[in-house]
């Protein structure tokens, strides 16, 4: 009950827009950040940013609409393969394949999730795992004879920008940063829009949302389509940096990492996704010697977090209150 009374005193107007200088400061810092670092750490930063984009795209599905998606990596792989195939077979410059990668992933997001939208909670979670695995196996089994089987695709041309071939990690970092800023900008706008509110209504109470005249099927589908499409973009960015892609991009572990980035950082919270990506990607890279035990630490962190701080490290205020309220309800007899 104490949690409830405390909440009454906290200001309830959520998410005030940050002062502009604060945002500019963050951008400047992220531009300067890789300069003193070597190529290895620049790549680590790039990877962290890439997974932040992935986390933000999953956050639309999981954080806003409250849909358990544990096969998100499939769309990441679909985006990468779309970009790779277009580049290898038709010679389309990689940067031009980006929009196609987004559209193709979004399209797959549509056809895969349309039949399973009526499922709830953990059932949805299982089907998405299955779909993720099916996508991976399709790529491994070389479905149309073009995906290169278990070895994947290699020798994808690097992206070229105004005659400049993006070869060094630093260029890829800036390319990623550009898209990361676009992502954050877009997501903040989505959050405070009619569509974003509809997602939250669905997350809060689907039956009530439907009774308020919200087409829940349509709204959930949009969350999946937008989230999947944006994951496809991250896949295309990956293809451009690595030039080699393999079906392993779609493996379950990748989906779990994305899922954890969102949940450990704090569902529905943009800074939370950054914290999550830092914990799941940057830390294991920095502590390479511990690499063998990385999964164990990861698992330990997941269990400990759920028990000690289920709302995530940097939660959106809303979700934090939701979780504590559940505890309050659970401990007080109705």
């Amino acid at each position: 009950m104490t949690a409830m009374t405390n909440m009454n005193t906290t200001p309830t107007r959520l998410r005030k827009i940050n002062p502009l200088w604060w945002q500019i400061g963050l951008v400047v810092v992220s531009i300067l950040l890789p300069l003193p670092l070597g190529d290895y750490y620049r790549t680590v930063l790039w990877r962290t940013g890439l997974y932040t984009i992935l986390g933000l795209s999953l956050n639309i599905i999981l954080g806003y609409a409250g849909l358990f998606q544990l096969g998100h990596a499939a769309f990441y792989a679909i985006g990468a393969y779309t970009a790779g195939l277009l580049n290898l077979h038709f010679g389309i410059p990689l940067l031009l394949t980006f929009p196609v990668a987004v559209i193709v992933s979004a399209f797959f997001g549509f056809i895969i999730t349309r039949p399973i939208l009526h499922l709830r909670g953990d059932y949805l979670c299982i089907v998405t795992i299955a779909f993720g695995e099916v996508v991976r196996l399709m790529l491994v089994n070389n479905l149309f004879g073009i995906t290169g089987g278990a070895n994947g695709l290699s020798r994808i041309a690097r992206p070229v920008l105004f005659g400049l071939v993006l070869r060094q990690p630093i260029y890829h970092y800036y390319l990623m940063l550009l898209f990361l800023i676009i992502t954050i900008f877009a997501i903040r706008r989505l959050e405070n829009s009619r569509l974003g509110r509809a997602w939250m209504y669905v997350r809060e109470d689907q039956v009530a949302a439907e009774a308020m005249g919200i087409d829940t099927t349509h709204v959930k589908l949009l969350a999946f389509v937008i989230g999947s499409g944006w994951a496809g973009l991250a896949g295309a960015l990956y293809a451009g940096q690595l030039t080699v892609i393999a079906p392993d991009m779609a493996k379950f572990l990748e989906s779990v990492i994305m899922f954890c980035i969102v949940v450990l950082g704090g569902t529905g919270s943009i800074p939370g996704v950054f914290v999550g990506a830092f914990g799941m990607i940057t830390l294991p890279e920095i502590f390479r010697p511990l690499k063998d035990w990385r999964d164990a630490w990861l698992g330990f962190a997941m269990v400990a977090m759920m028990i000690l701080r289920p709302e995530g490290l940097w939660p959106s205020r809303r979700i934090q209150m939701e979780i504590h309220a559940e505890e309050a309800v659970a401990t007080t007899p109705e």
């Binding site: 509110r197 509809a198 939250m200 209504y201 809060e204 949302a209 308020m212 939701e322 309220a325």
Partner: peptide
């Protein structure tokens, strides 16, 4: 919609 404000709750009405 428990974790949304009263205003946001009623804002669901004009949605359709």
């Amino acid at each position: 919609f428990n974790n949304l404000t009263a205003l946001e709750n009623v804002m669901a009405g004009p949605h359709h």
